[in-house]
Computed example of a mutant assay.
Amino acid sequence: MSIEPAAAVPVLLLSVRDEYAGRRWAPPGRHWPAQPSAVGGLDLVAGGTWLAVSPGSDSGAAGGPVAACLLNGFGTPAPEPARLSRGELPLLAVRGGRVDELDLDRYDPFHLVVVRPDGARVLSWGGGPGGRLVELELPTGLSVVLNDGPEGLAENRTASERIRALMAARAAHFRPRFEAVPRPEPLPGAASAGEAWGGWLPIVSGDGLALDAPAALVQRREFGDGRIWGSSSISLLAFGPAGVRYDFGRAPVTAGDGFRRVELSGPPG
């Protein structure tokens, strides 16, 4: 996440979705008739999404464009009989709903990044009796949000040294890589993802790292028993005065030719 209020395009979001390879999904579209302006990828298992975008045309939306991106967190899982899907949370957020009014005990731990044209905030829930929802407004500059929360500093973090090391390696490699190239200004009228995102696109596409490298942003890891965990898609969003630009690619992608523009304007349908 990059926030620069004085820039031509103040807010940029990069989201890499990691999931088990066998979980079925559909690419971004208007998949929810009850929420016609919401655009996002569809989880075909639970019916929700990991990232939703709204240009602000739903009657219930709170004003202008908004996006919401979900990350699984660590902590105390919800009790099985009462558990609800976290995939409904991005849809709630982009229609202006309030996460703090939910019965959060029914949700597994999560971090929800809510993005606006003037900034972004992270809502973090660690689960468990007596748990609390923590809200953090992201500062100006470059921020990294992990499954351990913003900058890996959530109240509830993983107990696995291996997972902690992998997340730390990702952040340590990619933060200076993004800072070393000019910050892009992805205007809605740019013809291609390469034109829009410039020097960021090769980095977003994996930066040449092997899929099983410790620092891999676009990854694939085998856990045995046929279980494969990896990156299934990459989303790039830019919020500016002219609106929202959304580029999407199935992972792994080749920089420049693996992304498509997601249409956000026009009549829902």
Rank of each mutant, 00 (worst) to 15 (best):
residue 213 A to C: 04
residue 220 R to H: 13
residue 2 S to Y: 07
residue 163 I to P: 01
residue 174 F to D: 00
residue 157 R to N: 00
residue 226 G to H: 06
residue 110 F to S: 06
residue 168 A to P: 01
residue 106 R to L: 03
residue 179 E to F: 05
residue 158 T to K: 10
residue 10 P to A: 05
residue 269 G to D: 01
residue 28 P to N: 09
residue 7 A to K: 12
residue 244 V to P: 10
residue 130 G to T: 11
residue 97 G to M: 08
residue 48 G to C: 06
residue 229 W to S: 03
residue 136 L to G: 04
residue 187 L to Q: 13
residue 141 G to W: 13
residue 266 G to C: 04
residue 162 R to G: 02
residue 32 W to D: 10
residue 253 V to T: 15
residue 13 L to K: 09
residue 15 S to C: 05
residue 127 G to P: 12
residue 232 S to A: 14
residue 176 P to W: 15
residue 220 R to W: 07
residue 64 G to D: 10
residue 29 G to I: 06
residue 229 W to E: 11
residue 39 V to A: 07
residue 88 E to W: 01
residue 264 L to H: 11
residue 43 D to F: 04
residue 88 E to N: 02
residue 163 I to N: 08
residue 219 Q to R: 15
residue 172 A to T: 14
residue 45 V to P: 00
residue 145 V to T: 07
residue 67 A to T: 05
residue 33 P to L: 09
residue 211 L to Q: 12
residue 180 A to K: 11
residue 81 P to N: 06
residue 180 A to W: 13
residue 122 V to N: 01
residue 216 A to Q: 08
residue 6 A to W: 12
residue 215 A to R: 03
residue 7 A to E: 02
residue 144 V to T: 08
residue 223 F to G: 03
residue 17 R to K: 03
residue 240 G to C: 05
residue 34 A to Q: 14
residue 204 V to N: 08
residue 77 P to D: 05
